[in-house]
């Protein structure tokens, strides 16, 4: 998953980015003014926009409105210093999905970011299951039945992305776009290496669900039909 933070306080943006990378296991990009933020949001594929309301260049409310006017359905979480009701109502009506008032708790921020990403992918539960494979987004753990599978953060993120869309073909490019921030060099063989490792670990745990390669198109998470 990949998140864009638009916050003009550089150190705060860096703190939030660190917390999200660490606590939510997502890739994070930062923009420090409104115009730059909007341009990034339009150019890249993010799973969540996290923005401050008061921004130089273009304020948060305008970014929300423009993104929604463009038909962008990415979940948006707004950070605001004001919590007056009318203000919050305006914000939500403009198309924001959630808001947090400053000073917020990093733990709460992480939880909300996860929940919004999950919702954005159409899942309500923090427990994702495909076949016998289950993923707990809160604990950031993956189990096959009751057996815990140890995964690296990147492997976990690839699996998470695939589990959100079981049986759908996900291209390498899409994985790259959603799993790495823009400072990362986009090499598709990096993905291939991680997918290969992921397969090994799943097989070692005796998991039947498999990450299949669809030649020339990408990957697909295929779970065998439960045997009756």
């Amino acid at each position: 998953m990949r998140v864009l933070i638009i916050e003009d306080e550089i150190r705060l943006a860096a703190n939030i980015a660190a917390a999200l990378r660490q606590g939510a296991g997502v890739a994070v990009d930062c923009a420090h003014d409104g115009r730059e933020g909007l341009a990034l949001a339009e150019a890249e594929h993010y799973d969540l926009l996290l923005l401050d309301l008061m921004l130089p260049g273009l304020d948060g409310l305008s970014i929300v409105r423009r993104a929604r006017a463009r038909g962008d359905r990415t979940p948006i979480l707004v950070l605001t210093a004001r919590d007056e009701r009318s203000h919050v109502v305006t914000l939500l009506n403009a198309g924001a999905d959630d808001y947090l008032t400053k000073p917020f708790d990093l733990g709460e921020l992480i939880a909300r970011v996860k929940a919004l990403i999950r919702r954005g992918k159409g899942a309500a539960d923090s427990l994702l299951t495909v076949g016998r494979l289950s993923m707990n987004a809160v604990e950031q753990t993956v189990r096959c039945g009751r057996l815990l599978i140890e995964l690296s953060p990147t492997e976990y993120r690839i699996l998470e992305y695939l589990m959100f869309r079981p049986r759908a073909i996900v291209s390498k490019r899409e994985l790259l776009e959603h799993l790495y921030d823009y400072t990362w060099e986009h090499h598709s063989n990096v993905i291939e290496a991680h997918v290969s490792n992921l397969r090994k670990r799943l097989r070692a745990a005796g998991e039947e669900a498999m990450v299949e390669t669809v030649r020339g198109r990408g990957y697909r998470l295929e779970a065998p039909e439960p045997k009756l």
Partner: peptide, 25 residues
């Protein structure tokens, strides 16, 4: 007042997040 609240709260958020980040791991 709004701007001042924003500035102060942003500063506070920064302090709080820095502290929380330090204790996260």
């Amino acid at each position: 007042t709004g701007d001042a609240a924003h500035e102060l709260k942003t500063s506070l958020t920064l302090l709080k997040s820095s502290l929380q980040l330090l204790t996260m791991g």
